[in-house]
Amino acid sequence: MDQEKKTLNTVHENDLKNLLEKFGLLGKVISGSVKCKFCDKTITLDNLHSILPESGNFNLICNSSDCVNELIVYLNEKKVKQEKL
């Protein structure tokens, strides 16, 4: 029996600029005008933990443990809401 596999979408840092460019965010990140979705920290190419595409926007999350945990809680709560619908 084939075991279920869950896909985790990832981007290599070598391709990060390319991805942000395609999302129209590279210039903003380089100029320091993008903030983390969960805190006020400025997102840089070095502290970016993940990208969350949502309702036509691309939210960026910094790599502080607080924000990663906030992200996990946020995704969980979203799941609960979706289950209720």
Partner: peptide, 13 residues
């Protein structure tokens, strides 16, 4: 490749 509401995790070298 990305999906609505799905995370894209950044991997360092």
């Amino acid at each position: 490749v990305w999906e609505e509401g799905g995370i894209i995790l950044v991997m360092r070298d």
